[in-house]
Amino acid sequence: MTSAVKPHSELLRVTDLHAYYGESHILHGLDFSLNRGELITLLGRNGAGRTTTLKAILGLVSRRTGSIIFNGQEILNLATHKIPHLGLGYVPEERGIFASLSVEENLLLPPQIRSDGMSVEELYEMFPNLAERRKSQGTRLSGGEQQMLALARILRTGAYVLLLDEITEGLAPVIVEKLGEVLTELKKRNYTIILVEQNFRFAAPLADRHYVIEHGHIEKVIEQADLAANMSMLHEYLGV
């Protein structure tokens, strides 16, 4: 499955990952890996376990077993609040903008984890709408602006591995297009990205590899080059 991986550049390797919320067993032995600078997608139906995969990496599930090696280090038993400091940034489903914080406070909230993150000025240049509305309450922004804020927020911290959950959900096509441009730019800057995405047309041209998740395990891996040949099968898996 991961024969193309060059060991020296491997950044994340997930092996036999099981995750639980209380009594419910969500992930059933997930395996995948990711090299530095790659963008992969996790595809699948609602409830297949894509969001849980991101949460399990971040330690946000009640129990997990298996192995998650990040940058050569086992992070399965690391305290949740220490994991992001290794270089991970998270954009949760529905963006997670804090209503009790202003736009600027939202932007400045996540602690800096490396010194080479983007500066606030740089981010305001990238997302000018945020600069204009920096004093507004975070949730007063439009859906698209909130999504920009959720992205900007983790780019400031110096995270170089981004876990993005459904960032195009409920957004107008022109905003989705803008997000595509942002991701292309981030890829150019050598960010490593895991994209959980429902909008396959958005994800397809950006990704190096696609993982189809079903019932909490990887059902299929599709390299970007083989995408065209696998389209009909994908449609079946995703039910689109």
Partner: peptide, 25 residues
Amino acid sequence: TRIGAYLRAGTENPELCQAFGINVP
């Protein structure tokens, strides 16, 4: 203050604060 922003954010969504590397406990 910044510490207050952590507090407000932690009140609203402690899980996400943890995911940002804030020591919520």
